[in-house]
């Protein structure tokens, strides 16, 4: 899809999101979380471009959220906590990445899962430090130096998440079109060729892995500051599965896919949980099955297909 069309769609989606949050105030929380998860899934999208699926990326989301929880008392400023969480997650991504980028396919996926479960166990067991499953309460930090009322703070978090989503979305789109992004796709189709072009496939994957960790950390920081309570469940394997679920639901073909998937996931979850308290997981599972069977390119695949056909007719 052309850059202009995608940018227009992104702007329309951002305006629609703000309008929806204005019309239904309770949606602000849901949409902020959806944007945060969309940012984390953007990172997963980078790895999917190389044909690799991480079943443990909640590790970085949790590390970002806990970075906020640990640092907020000392530095109660959202614009400091966000880069700090990104830096911590990026460093963690570098350490883990140096190990996992040596592996491919199921081994890559399961190693990520295993490492995320190690963090989950540490967060759960080191009670003196993490308060175990009770979690840590996060006081709302200042935003750009301002101590906001709760209502304004919730708006600020939504706008902050939206700005970061647009920024990371634009970055990922450019990255995937760059030589580094194209080399990622090369890992999926002809890794041997990359080596015989003088390129280290591991380094290409490591760069993407660290970027995906940074995005996971930023997402976790937004989640931590929005929910204002972080628990080890953020690192649990089901949280990682949720991110992969969103990636499939939204589609890996473009930078808007993760946000479409995240919004659809959060809204279906909220409505299904409210209307069918005992069956919301079955409803989500059914949605995923329908997407896999009838729209393998995800929601973004459906939309870009429709737009492509329309453009074809107009030509």
């Amino acid at each position: 899809m052309r850059r202009g069309t995608e940018a227009t769609l992104a702007l329309l989606a951002a305006a629609g999101l703000l309008a929806a949050a204005w019309a239904a105030p309770w949606l602000k929380f849901v949409l902020t979380i959806a944007l945060a998860k969309g940012i984390a899934v953007l990172g997963i999208l980078l790895l999917l471009r190389a044909g690799q699926v991480s079943f443990g990326h909640a590790l970085f989301l949790a590390s970002g959220a806990y970075a906020v929880a640990f640092l907020a008392p000392a530095a109660p400023e959202a614009l400091l906590l966000l880069p700090a969480a990104a830096l911590l997650a990026g460093l963690l991504g570098l350490v883990v990445g140096l190990f996992v980028v040596r592996y491919r396919d199921i081994f890559f996926g399961m190693l990520n899962l295993a490492i995320s479960m190690v963090l989950y166990s540490l967060l759960e067991k080191l009670y003196e430090l993490t308060r175990g499953t009770d979690g840590i309460r996060v006081e709302p930090p200042r935003v750009a130096g301002f101590a906001l009322t709760l209502e304004t703070y919730v708006w600020a978090m939504l706008v902050l998440a939206l700005v970061l989503a647009v920024g990371f979305g634009a970055f990922v789109r450019a990255y995937l079109g760059s030589p580094m992004g194209q080399a990622l796709a090369g890992i999926k189709t002809r890794e041997t060729r990359l080596e015989f072009m003088g390129v280290s496939a591991r380094r290409v994957l490591l760069a993407a892995y660290v970027l995906s960790a940074v995005m996971g950390g930023v997402a976790g920081a937004i989640v931590g500051m929005t929910t204002r309570h972080v628990t080890p469940l953020l690192a649990y394997w089901t949280s990682s599965g949720e991110l992969v679920f969103i990636a499939i639901l939204g589609g890996a073909g473009g930078a808007l896919g993760p946000f479409l998937g995240a919004a659809a996931y959060e809204l279906v979850r909220v409505y299904a949980a409210a209307s069918f308290a005992d069956a919301w997981q079955a409803i989500l599972g059914t949605v995923l099955l329908l997407v896999i069977l009838f729209a393998p390119g995800g929601l973004w695949g459906v939309i870009s297909g429709l737009l492509g056909r329309r453009a074809g007719r107009a030509a």
Binding site: F171, A174, Y175, S178, P179, A183, L194, V199, A207
Partner: peptide
Amino acid sequence: LAIAAREGLWSPLAP
């Protein structure tokens, strides 16, 4: 991509 590999891939935002 081969030319990019020759010259170095590390310009992550240029097409």
